[in-house]
C-alpha cells in the first residue's frame, strides 16, 4: 500500500471530525436549508467528473463521463439555487409591518 493512500485516509478522518464539529447545534428551522446546502456542496463532484472526462477514451467511456458531468452539474447548480431560494425567506424583515385592510381588491378612491 502506497503512502499516498495513507495521506488521503488522514485527510478523510480529519474531515470527518470537522464535519461533525462544525454543525454541532443547528436550530430545527435550519434543518432543511442545511440539508439542501450540504447537498449542493457535494455537487463539487463536478470537479471529479470534469477530470474523468479528460481521461476518457472511446465512445463508451466518453458517454459515461458525459452523463457524469451532466448529473453533477444538475446537483451543484440546482442545489445552490434551491438553497438560496429557501434562505431568501430568512432575510431580516423590516420592523414595520403594513396592516393591510384585508385582501379584497385595491379600491382607488375618487374613481367615480
Amino acid at each position: 500500500m502506497s503512502t499516498g493512500i495513507i495521506q488521503f485516509l488522514t485527510v478523510f478522518v480529519l474531515a470527518g471530525f470537522v464535519g461533525i464539529e462544525v454543525i454541532s447545534a443547528v436550530p430545527s428551522i435550519l434543518h432543511t436549508p442545511l440539508m439542501s446546502g450540504s447537498n449542493a456542496i457535494h455537487g463539487i463532484v463536478l470537479v471529479g467528473t470534469i477530470l474523468i472526462m479528460g481521461e476518457a477514451r472511446g465512445a463508451a467511456q466518453i458517454t459515461l463521463a458525459f452523463f457524469a458531468v451532466l448529473l453533477a452539474t444538475l446537483n451543484i447548480v440546482g442545489g445552490f439555487v434551491v438553497t438560496d431560494r429557501m434562505l431568501e425567506m430568512f432575510k431580516a424583515k423590516p420592523a414595520e409591518r403594513p396592516r393591510r385592510n384585508t385582501g379584497g381588491g385595491d379600491r382607488r378612491e375618487g374613481d367615480g
Partner: peptide, 8 residues
C-alpha cells in the same frame, strides 16, 4: 467536501 457532508 464529500466527507464533510457525509459526517455532518
Amino acid at each position: 467536501a464529500g466527507t464533510l457532508v457525509g459526517a455532518s
